[in-house]
Design a protein around this nucleic acid. Structure first.
Ligand code: MN
Ligand code: MN
Ligand code: MN
Ligand code: MN
Lengths: 222, 222
DNA sequence: AATAAAATTTAGACAAATCTAAAAAAATAT
DNA sequence: ATATTTTTTTAGATTTGTCTAAATTTTATT
């Protein structure tokens, strides 16, 4: 048994899925620029995806995935993110160098393989970029993990991980009463040095440097 | 950067490599039957591989890979076998269920990825079927494998690979306590039906048919 | 050596995915 | 409401990999 859909079709499904998350409906030009291809090529593919009953599409109106299309897209996203997690956590790649490799690995067809990989990795909830990983049934927890530099101001969040595990950073965090599970929010970001002012309930505000902020990961529901 | 060669070209290179290991040169029909395709398709591909300077080929004479072609083929074989090792050792698949998945994974292009995987796996020397894994430079340990029909009588040897990987032969070998790594020697060869009597240390002698003997490969120092 | 059989290649077709250039439709500006 | 611009689709080509059927070359047999 080969793959059900070609890599190309899978890439289109994924791109359309991401675009329709933002606006409800998607346009030909959106997809063309997202995928670095030509509008005419997108139209060609739209017809094929519609014929395969993955897409709601009427020409000149916009389009979006139907239930089946979303289901397929979510499985590809699941594969992409699990492979990224594998590359970072097991093969020690940097989070900034795994995307291209995952772009290929996401097209490996075996569902059993990806479920075993998920298990091997300990069922991670988010990929190395903090994006949620859908589970085997295509459901996902709407919790995003980001470092403190990328946490929106005034967004309540919970500390879920520390990047650098050195004694030095742990001493510093301990002193500022920041630990796993601590609930906090960012009150201010200073452009001058990218330092950040935090508020923890029942405490006076504390300031941390960019270097520290980059190493504190938090999760929040959106 | 995408892959240098298409999956299809890579599959041809691999098939030609394996076939030329046996006879020095390869024929169109050999490749067609090995790859379950048509002789005409093979000829089409031969022209492309020749144009890409991976193949020594003159029409109606046979053909074989040149140095560059062998180099590329070895890298694909390396990937195939490392992924098989990963699937068995890390994801706990059976050795009889990994081939199809590796057939896809071998086309993932990143060399850095496969070298990191190699390291992660502890630089294994053989895949789950006992076949050698070429190293990063495409070298492999030259363990000359012979099948049991060709193992000299009274020569101690170690089981290093199984040719046919059907569930049926594996069941039979399992019952006779023959597995990868088993040390054994041939005590007698019967000319009547080419059956063979084997001795495994601390066990009573066992007899296997010609058909089985042809599919059990061993290595030995001479 | 001539003929038959087998292997290999060529010719011509097709599907998938892409492109350019032109046409058609929709959106925007006057 | 018209005219202009932008977006989208169509028409026709190209590349890659595959196929069937026919032609050609090689090999084996009489
Ligand atoms: Mn992809
Ligand atoms: Mn990611
Ligand atoms: Mn393959
Ligand atoms: Mn193998």
């Amino acid at each position: 048994m080969g793959p059900k859909y070609s890599s190309s079709r899978e890439n289109y499904l994924k791109a359309i899925f991401h675009l329709q998350e933002v606006h409800g409906t998607v346009t030909t030009n959106d997809v063309a620029s997202e995928m670095q291809t030509r509008p005419a090529s997108v139209t060609d593919m739209l017809k094929k995806l519609k014929a395969q009953k993955l897409l709601l599409y009427e020409k000149y109106k916009g389009f979006k995935l139907n239930t089946e299309g979303r289901k397929v897209a979510l499985q590809i996203i699941r594969k992409h993110r699990l492979w990224e997690y594998f590359l970072v956590e097991k093969l020690r790649f940097g989070w900034d160098e795994v995307h291209e490799m995952a772009e290929e690995l996401e097209h490996i067809s075996s569902k059993k393989l990806i479920d075993r990989l998920d298990e091997f990795l300990g069922f991670p909830k988010t990929d190395p970029h903090g994006d949620p990983i859908p589970d085997s049934q295509g459901r996902w927890t709407l919790t995003r993990q980001v470092d403190l530099l990328n946490l929106p101001v005034n967004q309540q969040a919970e500390v879920s991980g520390i990047g650098d595990q050195s004694a030095e950073i742990l001493e510093l965090l301990n002193h500022k009463h920041i630990a796993l599970g601590t609930r906090l929010e960012v009150k201010k970001k200073f452009a001058f040095d990218n330092s950040i002012e935090l508020k923890i309930k029942n405490q006076s505000p504390v300031t941390i440097s960019e270097h520290v902020a980059k190493n504190v990961f938090v999760k929040y529901d959106d």
